[in-house]
Amino acid sequence: MKQIVVISGKGGTGKTILTASFAALAKNKVMADCDVDAADLHLLLAPDIKERQMFKSGHTAVIDKNICIECGKCRELCRFDAISEDFIVDPVSCEGCAFCSNICPVGAIKMEENTTGEWFVSDTRFGPMVHAKLGIAEENSGKLVSLVRNKARDIAEENGADWVIIDGSPGIGCPVIASISGVDCALVVTEPTMSGLHDADRVIQVAKHFKVPVKLVINKYDLNEDMSEQIENYCIEKNVELSGKIGFDENIVKAMVEGKTIIEYSDGKTTNLIKGIWEKLSRVLV
């Protein structure tokens, strides 16, 4: 079983479109949506939820006003400025470190476990899918990503699946690190803009830092062909394989509006290009 993750550095370059296309093309696979704080894959795969679990992670300090003697020790020691002058904890600033609860001389501070999201195992027309929803304004998305990935891998092993296809999140921080660690290939989708190249370069450095094999696709390459060429030169210079170039295609948005992958929506050029990318990718990885 091989795991492939689609990431981008910069948001909005086409990760989910490509992941959903691979879901339509690959045989015998499990999908994992690891963009847990703004998940979109479900809009194209229409999952039918079979199993639903709460995700608990991290703690928040709560001060019992009946016990608190307002000595101020917690306020003095908290490095995250999470305790107000009237001894109320701001849950957004609280890092859950429990320092305050450890040092409170009267034991007035308890640490309460946070429910920070939900995760799901679903059926889709392309096979099983594991996905999640991070609670509003919650943290620890990296841990939720790891949980989604582990569950997807378990299902793939049980079913004897050949692929785990993972939709990643933008950026280079904790959810991205959690979604790329230990995969067989990280496919970076970028666009021919200065921002696209800048951000792809940073996420490629992260992939290399964690020793994850990385390849690159240029989406909407024809929006600026000079910039596309610069990205191709970058690939040669940095020894990153260019898996393909996809042109701007209005059908992608039209397919999205109908809740379909581009593969199902049209037999056109884009579909053939993505098929070519997948065939090449899967041949090398198997």
Partner: peptide, 14 residues
């Protein structure tokens, strides 16, 4: 601000 809805976004907008 960064994209998304989790802690980096909250920290930025706060």
């Amino acid at each position: 601000a960064p994209p998304g809805t989790s802690c980096p976004v909250i920290t930025s907008i706060q």
